[in-house]
């Protein structure tokens, strides 16, 4: 079953002669528990695609469906709620709040959703322990290594039990060793916890962890490589 689906997704910036088409009628589907890497040269539209998938930006035309909901039909508040409940974001620069400790950072999405802070922190602690950060719960981001910070960010992305994780160059700021760890963790998230993971990366080594690689070029689907067998129905167009 597809958790994410785009239909003729197009995004253009500017108008007239200076208009730039970042995405050009892109249609794809991503299945539950599938890990997909999006690759391509810079300016190929991979970041734009991720923004559109996350409802952070609005498409010029076309549709994005997440878990049966059409994002293009949602207003800002509904989008916000969708992000909170169905999506998890992982950023290149981790983007942890510097003044909150690991547990508090990881608990943010559920506390924002109104969960009692004790319960929220218990959930966050659970995820952090799974990711081997059980002894770093009260550390501030500045007291954690890059890899640890990104693991906190992944815990944060998962704490609200979203169906889809969107990661933007999640290893872009890490060394090779930490990158491998994070990529393996993301794969574990997809396989063990059955979340779909969409990850933009330019690192072949990280992309190789995925089930499928989507190559973009000039806003269009240039190529697609299936690396591992995947659940039925996850076919790209």
């Amino acid at each position: 079953m597809a958790i994410l689906k785009t239909n003729q997704l197009t995004k253009t910036y500017g108008a007239g002669d200076t208009a730039v088409t970042a995405l050009d009628h892109l249609s794809l589907e991503i299945a539950v528990g599938e890990m997909v890497a999006i690759m391509g040269p810079s300016g190929c539209g991979k970041s734009t695609l991720l923004h559109l998938l996350g409802g952070l930006d609005t498409p010029t035309s076309g549709e994005v469906w997440i878990d049966g909901q059409n994002l293009t039909r949602l207003n800002d508040n509904q989008l916000t709620e969708l992000r909170r409940r169905k999506l998890g974001f992982i950023f290149q620069f981790f983007n942890l709040i510097p003044v909150l400790n690991a547990v508090e950072n990881a608990a943010l999405p559920v506390t924002l959703d109104g969960m009692a802070s004790q319960q929220a922190q218990a959930k966050a602690t659970e995820w952090l322990q799974r990711f081997g950060l059980g002894n770093r719960l009260k550390n501030l981001p500045s007291q954690l290594s890059g890899g640890q910070q990104q693991r906190v960010a992944i815990a944060r992305a998962l704490v609200a039990e979203p169906a889809l994780i969107l990661a933007d160059e999640p290893t872009g700021n890490l060394d090779t060793h930490a990158s491998d760890e994070i990529a393996a963790l993301l794969r574990q998230v997809a396989k063990e916890y059955r979340r779909s993971v969409v990850m933009v990366t330019h690192d072949p080594r990280i992309a190789a962890y995925a089930d499928r690689i989507i190559f973009l070029k000039d806003g269009k689907l240039a190529d697609e490589t299936v690396l591992a067998s995947q659940p039925a129905g996850a076919v790209a167009h």
Binding site: L56, R83, R84, L87, F89
Partner: peptide, 8 residues
């Protein structure tokens, strides 16, 4: 970041 995490 807070906004993308679902802060209104």
């Amino acid at each position: 970041m807070l906004r993308s995490l679902g802060a209104t």
